[in-house]
Design a protein around this nucleic acid. Structure first.
Length: 464
RNA sequence: UCCCCGAUAGCUCAAUUGGUAGAGCGAGCGGCUGUUAACCGCUAGGUCGUAGGUUCGAGUCCUACUCGGGGAGCCA
């Protein structure tokens, strides 16, 4: 079938031509004048196209008059200038084939506003709505912008494994991967699980981060990035957490924390610029119906220089304000959501990059600073979301790394391959992780992370 | 996992101090209309999340559980 996408039809270039479009009915209005108006959407853009159906159509009485929301149709006709006010062009149809009916009494997506909570129970159909169609298109554009950004800069896309044996040191609780039967688990003499009988003959997990596996590629091929799903078995019930989410993790070769921060800032700006430029209609919708400040916020991020502040300086700011904190602030403590939001929303009113955190609250692989107290870490904080990027320069000095792993009580033998990178041609390198869904949230203004991923996985929830 | 709030028609919500359930939207039918989240009229539709308890009487009060939302922790 030679199908014209509705986005192209509305572009108007084929005006005056005979075209065929296909999609799902949003609304139908019948006129006693002997014709009907069908608003058709095919997902190619936010807008519907209006199909005018005349009662001279063979199936006008038998089918067109009974069309309802959700029906799928293929319509052919001439693309003409519209007499109506809300669209410049419309299709004067010569044939409309009803492909799939949709029982209006039972169709879960009514032509009215639904709550997002309700639509989550209709995960297979919610992409038929304005909001979820727009989210899907923006999410897609963000993903293409991510690849675009790195490919333009000569970064290599590396696929790190989903099933891993390393835990990336405290990045989060992990899901076990096993083929052992739950009701018949083989035991060792000491009562522990006998993993030698498992598929991989050892405990394995779903990845919580591709960082450790992408570093070797960085230390041989230069600038690289990994981009894929990650999993956390944390019992987190918040609008900002998922058990399965997507993460982008670039790793820069021969680079320090400054390079890392420059990259992160340019990266975020590239993504938001792409969304604003290429998803105008969708963004207009989000700005009108979801968050009235979202376009302004994104524009502000693109145009402003990110504030770069050391952790130590941030603690100073937080202790000198009259603001009362639920969690007390002192040097050495991890910053809480209230602190991060205060800094980015009230003190700087812009994205903030916090750097040089105390060693004690950061993982083993971060590079120790000369002060022996802090590490070369950086977090990018944005309004509303808080931490959107976390990164660091990696510890490239073998002796320092080993000492640090020892202090952290790690089993060094498990990480022999990671340590090898410091033995054979070690280099300074740095990287960060960006949560895709939080980025989509920030770009769209959607309040709940469950509404920016097609099928959210959260504690006690894996429907669809 | 902790704290707070909620669950009533297909959906979004209302129901006074405990007295036996309503609206809007949607749907069906009819009217009107180059309409556009159209408009006007009529109709159908509910063991008030589940299980106990208090009471002459519970949508309303109490307890537990389930699910949902907000905040927090963990983090991306």
């Amino acid at each position: 079938m030679d199908r014209t996408k509705i986005a192209d039809a509305l572009g108007g270039e084929s005006q005056g031509q005979e075209i065929t479009i296909a999609g799902w009915v949003r609304t139908v209005r019948h006129s006693k004048g002997g014709f009907s108006f069908i608003a058709l959407n095919d997902g190619s853009c936010f807008a519907q196209i209006q199909v005018v159906a005349d009662n001279t159509l063979a199936n006008y009485d038998s089918e067109i008059l009974h069309l309802t929301a959700g029906c799928s149709v293929i319509a052919s006709g001439k693309l003409v200038a519209s007499e109506g006010k809300n669209q410049s062009v419309e299709i004067q149809s010569t044939e409309i084939r009803v492909i799939g009916k949709s029982d209006a009494e039972k169709y879960p997506i009514q032509p009215k506003r639904h709550s997002f909570e309700y639509l989550r129970t209709q995960g297979h159909l919610r992409s038929r709505t304005n909001t979820f169609g727009a989210v899907a298109r923006v999410r897609n554009r963000i993903c293409s912008a991510i690849h675009e950004f790195f490919q333009q800069r000569g970064f290599l896309y590396v696929h790190t494994p989903i099933i891993t044996t390393s835990d990336c040191e405290g990045a989060g609780e992990q899901f076990n991967v096993t083929t052992l039967q739950m009701n018949d688990i083989p035991r060792n003499d000491d009562g522990g699980v006998d993993f030698s009988q498992d598929f991989f003959a050892r405990p394995t997990y779903l990845t919580v981060s591709g960082q450790l596996e992408v570093e070797p590629y960085c230390c041989s091929l230069g600038d690289v990035y990994t981009f894929g799903p990650t999993f956390r078995a944390e019992n987190s019930n918040t609008p900002r957490h998922l058990a399965e989410f997507w993460m982008v993790e670039p790793e820069l070769a021969f680079a320090d924390l400054q390079c890392d921060m420059d990259l992160a800032e340019a990266f975020l700006k590239h993504i938001f610029r792409a969304v604003l430029e290429d998803c105008r209609e969708d963004m207009q919708f989000f700005n009108e119906r979801i968050d009235k400040t979202v376009i302004e916020t994104l524009t502000h991020v693109i145009e402003s220089d990110f504030e770069r502040v050391t952790y130590t300086k941030a603690i100073e700011i937080l202790t000198q304000t009259d603001r009362k904190w639920e969690y007390p602030v002192e040097w050495g403590c991890d910053l809480q959501t209230e602190h991060e939001r205060f800094l980015t929303e009230e003190v700087f009113n812009a994205p903030v990059i916090l750097t040089d955190y105390p060693r004690g609250i950061k993982p083993f692989y971060m590079r120790c600073n000369d002060d022996k107290k802090t590490v070369a870490a950086m977090d990018v904080l944005v309004p509303k979301i808080g931490e959107i990027i976390g990164g660091s320069q990696r510890e490239e000095r073998l002796d320092v790394l080993l000492k640090r792993m020892e202090q952290c009580g790690m089993d060094i033998s498990e990480y022999w391959w990671y340590i090898d990178l410091r033995k054979y041609g070690t280099i300074p390198h740095a990287g960060f992780g960006l949560g895709l869904e939080r980025t989509v949230q920030f770009a769209t203004g959607m309040a709940n992370i469950r509404d920016v991923i097609p099928y959210p996985r959260t504690p006690r929830n894996a429907e669809f």
